[in-house]
C-alpha cells in the first residue's frame, strides 16, 4: 500500500509504442526541482537509434542524459537507456550497461531494467509501465511489486497500444492504474 512517508530512491519507467508522447508530457509538466532520479527504458525503432534524448530534452524541464556504464544516479536527472544496450541498476546506486542478446526481442529490455531496480532498491522503487505493443516489462514490474516497491500501470484505456499494460495487469494487481495526466500529478505530489 502507498505509504505517505515513504521516499523513493529511484523511479523506473518503461514503455514502447506510443510512450514517447506520454513521457514528453510527464517530463514537461514535472516539478523542475523534482529530486528523485528517473530511469527510462523505452523501446525504439531499430533503424532510428539516435535523437531520442534530443527529442525528450526539447520539452523536459529536468536534464535528460544517456548514461555511460558505471555512472552514479544523481538527483534531478532523467536517465534514458541508450539504444542497443540493456540498462541495469546496481546495489551501489550505479548504472550498468550490457550488450547481451536481446530479451523479449528488445534491447534495451524493460524487464531487465525493472527487475534489476527491484533487486537493488527493494521497497524504495517506484515502477511505472506505460503504453506499448509488446509484453516486455510485465514481468519486471511484477517483480517490483513482489519486492514491495510501488507500482503504477498506465490505464489501458488511455494507451495508444495497450498490449504492454494489459499483459502486466494479467500478471498482478498494481497499486494504481492511472492515465498520463494522473501519473504526472501523482509524481508531483510525492514527498521529495
Amino acid at each position: 500500500m502507498y505509504n505517505q512517508d515513504q521516499t523513493y530512491k529511484v523511479i523506473v519507467m518503461g514503455g514502447s509504442a506510443g510512450s514517447f508522447s506520454v513521457v514528453s508530457h510527464i517530463l514537461a509538466g514535472i516539478n523542475p526541482e523534482f529530486k528523485i532520479p528517473i530511469v527510462l527504458c523505452l523501446h525504439r525503432l531499430k533503424h532510428v537509434r539516435s535523437g531520442l534524448v534530443e527529442g525528450l530534452s526539447l520539452k523536459s524541464v529536468i536534464p535528460v542524459v544517456e548514461p555511460n556504464d558505471k555512472a552514479k544516479l544523481r538527483p534531478n536527472t532523467v536517465y534514458l537507456a541508450p539504444s542497443n544496450y540493456h540498462l541495469f541498476l546496481e546495489l551501489d546506486g550505479s548504472i550498468a550497461l550490457s550488450t547481451e542478446e536481446s530479451f523479449n526481442h528488445s534491447r534495451p529490455s524493460i524487464d531487465y531494467t525493472l527487475s534489476s531496480a527491484a533487486y537493488a532498491f527493494r521497497d524504495r522503487v517506484l515502477g511505472i509501465l506505460l503504453t506499448g505493443a509488446n509484453k516486455d516489462g510485465a514481468r519486471g514490474i511484477k517483480e517490483i511489486a513482489d519486492n514491495k516497491g510501488f507500482t503504477i500501470v498506465q490505464d489501458p484505456k488511455s494507451c495508444d497500444i495497450d498490449t504492454m499494460p494489459r499483459s502486466a495487469l494479467q500478471l498482478f494487481q498494481p497499486d494504481l492504474v492511472l492515465d498520463p495526466q494522473q501519473i504526472l500529478e501523482f509524481l508531483n505530489a510525492l514527498p521529495q
Binding site: 555511460n68 556504464d69 544496450y85 550488450t99
Partner: peptide, 8 residues
C-alpha cells in the same frame, strides 16, 4: 571504446 563506456 564502446559508445557508452568512459575512463574513470
Amino acid at each position: 571504446l564502446g559508445t557508452h563506456e568512459s575512463i574513470n
